[in-house]
Simulated assay, not measured.
Amino acid sequence: MSKQVVETPMMKQYNEIKQQHPDAVLLFRVGDFYETFSDDAITASEILGITLTRRANGAAQFVELAGFPHHALDTYLPKLVRAGKRVAICDQLEDPKLTKTIVKRGITELVTPGVSINDNVLNHKENNFLAAVYSANGKTFGISFLDISTGEFLTTEGNKDETDKLLSSFSPKEILIERGSKRKLGEYFGSDYFFFELDDW
């Protein structure tokens, strides 16, 4: 008979917050550190070159853990984003000294390759375009480009070759696409882009 896995209160809170952004690396503030757990910890360890450890998570269960001091966020956040990762930053929303229960936490920022206003993530010598591409028939494509750091917004439509030229010219840091279309768009435009799938809009 298998044992029932018992989550610690903090890991329960972590898992609830992680469900809000399952495709993002969740940086979870614990005291003076940002911690990552499970698959996020493995990813962070590989990209950032930080130590991967394990910690107890309730009865007879362990979870991977990797973290860094909160004051090093400006060093590590750009590395994750430039590696094409979406990053959800979860901070403590109350002073731990003022509560007798688990500290209230919440997402305070979502940083993606195409959506960032963080000076340490942006390269000020080039645009930081977020693109969106959609095609209902595989022949005509709607495409838009947005750089939130400059306010530039452009939109047009064209055939596959015209869309490919625009993507090459604008070099978006991230492309939003309809869920389920990543393989096909990768065949059309190459796999050098960071595609992020969204539910049908």
Rank of each mutant, 00 (worst) to 15 (best):
His71Thr: 10
Ala72Asp: 12
Leu73Val: 15
Asp74Pro: 12
Thr75Leu: 11
Tyr76Val: 06
Tyr76Arg: 00
Tyr76Leu: 10
Leu77Gln: 03
Leu77Arg: 03
Pro78Phe: 06
Lys79His: 05
Lys79Cys: 13
Lys79Asp: 02
Lys79Val: 13
Val81Leu: 09
Arg82Leu: 13
Arg82Gln: 15
Gly84Leu: 11
Lys85Ser: 01
Lys85Leu: 05
Arg86Phe: 03
Val87Ile: 12
Val87Glu: 01
Val87Trp: 02
Ala88Glu: 01
Cys90Ile: 05
Cys90Tyr: 01
Asp91Tyr: 09
Asp91Asn: 06
Asp91Ile: 11
Leu93Asp: 00
Leu93Cys: 05
Glu94Gly: 08
Asp95Lys: 00
Asp95Trp: 03
Pro96Arg: 00
Lys97Pro: 11
Lys97Leu: 11
Lys97Asn: 08
Leu98Ser: 12
Leu98Asn: 10
Thr99Met: 06
Lys100His: 06
Lys100Met: 11
Lys100Gln: 08
Thr101Gly: 14
Ile102His: 05
Ile102Tyr: 05
Ile102Ser: 06
Val103Gln: 04
Val103Leu: 06
Lys104Trp: 01
Arg105Glu: 00
Gly106Met: 05
Gly106His: 04
Ile107Arg: 03
Ile107Gln: 02
Ile107Asn: 04
Ile107Thr: 13
Ile107Cys: 14
Thr108Arg: 03
Thr108Tyr: 05
Thr108His: 04
Glu109Arg: 15
Leu110Cys: 13
Leu110Phe: 14
Val111His: 05
Thr112Trp: 07
Thr112His: 04
Thr112Ser: 10
Pro113Ala: 00
Gly114Leu: 10
Gly114Asn: 05
Gly114Ile: 13
Val115Asn: 03
Val115Thr: 09
Ser116Met: 13
Ile117Thr: 15
Ile117Phe: 14
Asn118Ala: 10
Asn118Ser: 11
Asp119Pro: 15
Asn120Pro: 15
Asn120Ser: 10
Asn120Thr: 12
Val121Gln: 01
Val121Gly: 06
Leu122Met: 13
Asn123Val: 15
Phe129Thr: 10
Phe129Trp: 10
Leu130Phe: 14
Ala132Cys: 14
Ala132Ser: 14
Val133Trp: 07
Val133Tyr: 09
Val133Arg: 01
